[in-house]
């Protein structure tokens, strides 16, 4: 009996070791000159095999759908399939860390957004955009302050006025440490209101927040056209203000926050990232494929149907864009303290 027990354990351990041998390892070899040529060749031949794009969220969410869609179009221009892999968890850092530590050969990419900055500022991880090679920005989804139709406020300004007169009575839901947490703090700061006038309650993700709002357990949350439009059409929810420079085509009647005297714009900006040190030539090829995908009218139409704006920025512009973004989040992070 002992013997067979031992055999099982040995079998398990062998399996585990075997599988771990297949897992990507951190690159450690210093390249002699001969290998430099090989590296150049790798750039010229890229891509030779399928590319993995890590989505740091569960399947079915906006990030998942947008990247799966865009990759279907981008892979046509690369000649190799882009395989989307979901690695959800821990404010998206399970997936981002996997890519950060992957071999910088262009075969492991990350599709993510502003959460890379918020995860850093809320202390979940100690790295942000600088740990990656940003390739390109593809879309921006403007965020919208949303409430239930049964409540009296019609704009964010009205809601904040009431909040000031009775601090702590209006309940606003957020996912602490994620983009919507920074969204509400940004609004409060731009409106010049103390952050204590709202009672912030933590929920995990947008779906549960909308459910709580529909059941009138909370008073408001951040949403976007895709997640809340159906409820607005049905008369259950209403939009209080769009955090964007201009009004949105799908909801022309909803004023921007700026029109209400709250100078604050906030969108979820999705882009593609590669591990630090990926050769510039490979980055260029990926950028080119995504640029063509975002120019495809069919792809564009599908994204716009979801209430998201196509906002392509090539690598150079994207790097500058992210610098600005970090400054904005840095300011908001000071408020959280």
């Amino acid at each position: 009996m002992r013997k067979s027990l031992l055999m099982v354990l040995v079998a398990v351990i062998c399996l585990a070791l075997l599988a771990s041998g297949c897992a990507p390892e951190a690159q450690e070899e210093a390249k002699p000159q001969a290998e430099e040529k090989a590296a150049e060749e790798a750039v010229a031949k890229y891509p030779e095999r399928p590319i993995q794009l890590v989505i740091p969220y569960k399947p079915g969410g906006a990030t998942d759908i947008i990247f799966r869609l865009v990759c279907k179009y981008a892979e046509k221009h690369l000649g190799q399939p882009i395989v989307c892999v979901n690695m959800p968890g821990a404010t998206s850092t399970v997936g981002s860390r996997h890519v950060k530590e992957a071999r910088p050969d262009g075969y492991t990419l990350l599709g993510s957004h502003d959460v890379i900055a918020t995860a850093f500022y809320s202390g979940v991880v100690d790295y942000a955009f600088e740990a990656f090679e940003p390739i390109c920005l593809i879309t921006s989804t403007p965020n919208i302050a949303t409430t239930h139709s049964d409540y009296p406020w019609n704009t964010m300004k009205e809601l904040l006025e009431e909040a000031k007169s009775k601090p702590g009575e209006i309940v606003w839901s957020t996912t602490f440490g994620s983009t919507d947490h920074f969204f509400i703090l940004g609004i409060l700061e731009a409106a010049g209101v103390s952050k204590d006038v709202l009672r912030l309650v933590g929920y995990e993700g947008t779906g549960p927040q909308l459910t709580a709002l529909l059941g009138k357990h909370t008073h408001g949350c951040m949403a976007n056209v895709a997640s809340a439009m159906g409820h607005v059409e049905a008369g259950d929810l209403k939009f209080l203000g769009v955090a964007w420079e201009s009004r949105l085509p799908q909801i022309p009647d909803v004023p921007t926050l700026k029109e209400q005297g709250i100078d604050f714009a906030h969108a979820t900006n999705r882009g593609v990232f590669a591990p630090k040190g990926t050769p510039e030539g490979i980055l260029k090829k990926i950028e080119e494929a995504f640029r063509k995908a975002m120019e495809d009218p069919e792809c564009k139409a599908k994204i716009e149907e979801m209430g998201t704006l196509v906002n392509f920025k090539p690598r150079e512009e994207y790097v500058k864009f992210l610098d600005e973004l970090m400054k904005k989040y840095d300011k908001l992070a000071q408020m959280m303290k």
């Binding site: 399947p59 079915g60 759908i65 779906g207 895709a226 159906g230 059409e233 049905a234 259950d236």
Partner: peptide, 24 residues
């Protein structure tokens, strides 16, 4: 509103086809 992770993916498929899920 998705009842679980599985129906969340189904809703995602609907959104992708330009159908807005919701009470309407």
């Amino acid at each position: 509103i998705p009842g679980n992770a599985i129906t969340a993916v189904m809703l995602g498929a609907l959104i992708l086809h330009g159908i807005t899920p919701g009470p309407m």
